[in-house]
Amino acid sequence: MISFFLFAIVNILVVLILAPFYISLIKKVKALFQGRKGPKLFQAYYNLLKLFKKESIYSTNSSFIMRVAPYINIICSIVAILFVPLLFIPDNYFGFGNIILFLYILALAKFFMALAGLDAGSTFGGMGSSREMSISSIIEPIVIIIFATLAFVYNSVNFFEIFGATSVGLVHASLWLLLIPLIIVLLTETARIPIDNPETHLELTMVHEAMILEQSGKNLALMELSSGVKQVLLMAIIINLFFPIGFNLPLSLIGIGTSLIAFLIKSIILAISIGIIESFIAKSRLFRLPIIFAIAFLLSLITLMMEMLL
């Protein structure tokens, strides 16, 4: 019981504090690759603070959805944090950690974000929502198959149990095949190149940005924070599945501290490699996206087949 409370507090704090950091880290890496100096490493924190101080402005056409959506988003994200252990696994987890529930909580957040995009009645918002929804409906089967494979291999649909298994033994060789689909899912869900370009406000390429175009002030800050949280969670899934070194040490202050440092190092490396991947590939057209998803689908299905066979 106590270990779960400890887990909840530590997990939520770590994720909420770290979330803005990776946003600016990836920006910095990309800037360096482009030969620019780039923003400060803590720029995202300043941005969020500034936004929190400002008031929100609503369009006269907007309904209550616009007002509720940011709060639903951040609440969903905070609940989702409880599903993915970052540093250690508590003794008892009270039904948290169910993969399917986790996916649906994220989907709920996304649904309200898309509704808010439609709500203001601007053309960009509608376009962004429709694009986001079509992309997420294509990525959905891939996500399902990836987690079905994990569930099949580890005989569980719970993150706590799966991570408990990976932290003990070696990862199956064939599971490495899942790394590529998982990274594709990560890029898609966090709206990064080649699926989406988070930096422009160009109507041709915007997907995620178009949806939150109408948000302002506190609400925008909440939206940004929750997408940062989502990014950290997905990164944590990849890290704890494939590189579980230093994860889930015996429960003590030193243990948690070591795990935190290990997680920081691994996640920084992952974030830097995401930045590198983004710098090397170009944003693909919306109609070229299915090829990326098809590759992810193929690889995840082959992994499932291999696991069933071997």
Binding site: A173, S174, W176, L177, I302, M306
Partner: peptide, 9 residues
């Protein structure tokens, strides 16, 4: 196994 996976990729 890893090489087979690589071949598929």
């Amino acid at each position: 196994k890893i090489s087979l996976v690589l071949l598929v990729i």
